[in-house]
Amino acid sequence: MDKAPNKVVLILRKEWLELRQQRVLLLGMLAPPLIFAVMPLAFASFAGQNLMEEDANMPNLNDLIKLNPALEGMGPLELGQTLITQQFSILFLLLPVILPSVIASYSIIGEKTSRTLEPVLATPVSTRELLLAKCLIGVVPSVLITWLVATIFAIGLSFVAVSPRVLEAIISPGWVLVLLLCAPLLCLITVAATVAISSRVSDPRTAQQISVVLIIPIMGLFFGQLTGLLILSPILAVIGAIILALLAAASLWIASALFQRETILTRWS
């Protein structure tokens, strides 16, 4: 029997049809992951070949070794490569903020500016289905790209790492957990923030610029690790995931409150 398809799937299909025709948008989505995959590997490779022994004997490095047991017993080259590459590995968490902000801002504000929201809202689609589709189109490709790029990075690192210990220290259980748990949650928060921002602005670029404010806490993590104040352990990853889950729940609640037929048609500027 010819059956009506699921509306969420239908909207996702339509979004994909539109998305793949926007070359600038696709470029904006693909450029950061490529940079994020290549740059850390290039630095890792450089550090593995060129770090001087005297650099590894600096007093602050000794402090870092005390804070991070994974570094204990490493030779100077291993230590240098691990410390430099670990900093870049945190930057992978920027992708779950950058990518969904690009997709969601075009997906939601695009509908708003082309005035397609009213005809869509006039159909029997529920606002929950519509919001779910908008979230999925922002979250799913972003998470998949993040994981794909992280996998490429891990595989690439296995070739340039000066020893297996370096690989284990960088591709640590904490890092893997952060990517598996925190990346999807960061995507959700970004999409929810974009929905909230979309109720006030009418330009996708403005929405992107505002939503990338979410990068700030991640940069905090980056500098925390750089200074040795934070070590990306499994416990820290789980704590981070719990905090992000709470934030994601709160931001989705706000987004769904703003994403109502009445509110969209009468209050969205």
């Binding site: 339509k14 049809l17 539109e18 082309s114 005035r115 929201l117 005809p119 006039a122």
Partner: peptide, 14 residues
């Protein structure tokens, strides 16, 4: 019901 809104509101890329 069917509705023709004030502005056509169509997807330009489709």
């Amino acid at each position: 019901v069917g509705i023709l809104t004030e502005t056509p509101g169509l997807y330009d890329r489709l």
